[in-house]
Computed example of a mutant assay.
Amino acid sequence: MQAAIDILDEEGDAGLTFRALAARLATGSGAIYWHVADKDELLAAATDQVIVRFEPQDVERLSPQEAIRALSQGVFDAIDSHPWAGAQLSGNPFQYAVLRILEGLGTQVVALGVPERGRFNAATALLSFMLGLAAQYAVASRHFRDASDRATALRAVAAKWVELDPEQHPFIHHVAPLLPEHDDREQFMAGIDLILAGIDTSR
């Protein structure tokens, strides 16, 4: 798994082949097939390992809200460190890594005291927001090599936004200057807090 993760970090999904992995491990492809059936299973297992590494510890010491924030930060940091994992999470929402996240969220939603009829909606609202982040990072990883690429691209987007008719797009004009410099992690956690506030109100 670690060798697969290393290849994915260096070369992305396209670089991970059983031949490349066998060469990295100095073994034959047959030895790898003994452990995983195909590339999809290998990607799912690598994604799950990445998520596990960023899971918060000692969540029982946290309040449910704090535990959800900690889990959310862990998912963000996992995807930020391994953008290919974003593509895997968003591309296959039924893989075990996603179920692991949902279980963690659902446990805390129950602890919040959300009525049974609202638990699924509350937990999946949080999960869907996270998978939206995952999809964003998957796209960004294909277009931006590093932070400077991202900033340059966002400045170009903001410049196009400013060219729009301000009477038809007043909000876009208002937020255009914020786009190039905004902090992704801060914005993501603000979204989690908004969902938590909504859950608290509905509760």
Rank of each mutant, 00 (worst) to 15 (best):
I172C: 09
I51Y: 00
R100H: 09
P64D: 11
D80N: 10
P177D: 10
H174L: 15
G132W: 12
L194C: 10
G28V: 07
D183S: 12
P177F: 10
L102Q: 10
G30Y: 02
D80A: 15
S141K: 00
L43P: 08
V157F: 13
A159C: 03
A176N: 14
E186S: 14
L178M: 13
V110S: 08
D58P: 00
A159P: 05
A23S: 01
G74T: 11
A46Q: 02
L89S: 03
A45F: 05
L89W: 07
A134T: 06
A44M: 06
L126N: 09
Q168C: 11
R100Y: 03
S29W: 00
T152V: 13
L102M: 12
A135R: 09
F54C: 12
A67F: 02
I172A: 12
F54L: 05
D40K: 13
S148V: 03
R203N: 15
R155I: 02
Q136N: 15
I32T: 02
V157A: 12
L21S: 01
A134S: 13
D13A: 10
D149A: 13
L178T: 08
V59G: 02
V157L: 14
K39P: 00
D77Q: 12
L105M: 05
Q73V: 00
A158W: 13
W84S: 07
V139C: 04
P83S: 03
G86R: 03
F129A: 14
I172W: 07
F171L: 15
Q49W: 03
A123V: 03
A26S: 15
G191L: 10
A123Q: 04
A44T: 02
S63I: 07
S81Y: 00
A140S: 13
S202R: 13
L25G: 05
D165Y: 06
S128R: 05
R61W: 01
Q187C: 09
G28M: 02
H35Y: 05
Q108F: 11
A78D: 02
P64A: 08
A26L: 05
M189H: 07
N92T: 13
A70G: 07
L99T: 04
F94V: 09
E66I: 05
L112S: 06
V98W: 01
A45S: 08
P180I: 11
A46F: 01
E103P: 01
A22Q: 02
R119N: 07
L131W: 06
A122V: 07
A87C: 06
I172R: 10
R69E: 15
V109A: 04
I192R: 10
P64T: 09
R185Q: 09
S128P: 07
A156I: 00
E186M: 10
V114W: 04
F94H: 06
D149Q: 05
A78M: 06
L71K: 04
D193E: 15
A111I: 03
S81K: 04
A70Q: 05
L164S: 09
N92Q: 11
G30A: 09
V109W: 03
H143I: 08
G191V: 10
G106M: 12
A176E: 14
L62N: 02
G104S: 08
D77N: 11
E116D: 15
P180E: 13
E167Q: 14
P115M: 11
D9T: 14
S29G: 03
I172D: 10
R145C: 08
G91E: 00
Q65F: 12
A134Q: 03
V52M: 05
D13Q: 09
V98Q: 02
I172M: 11
I5C: 12
H143C: 09
G12F: 01
R53M: 05
G15R: 01
G104I: 06
L42N: 04
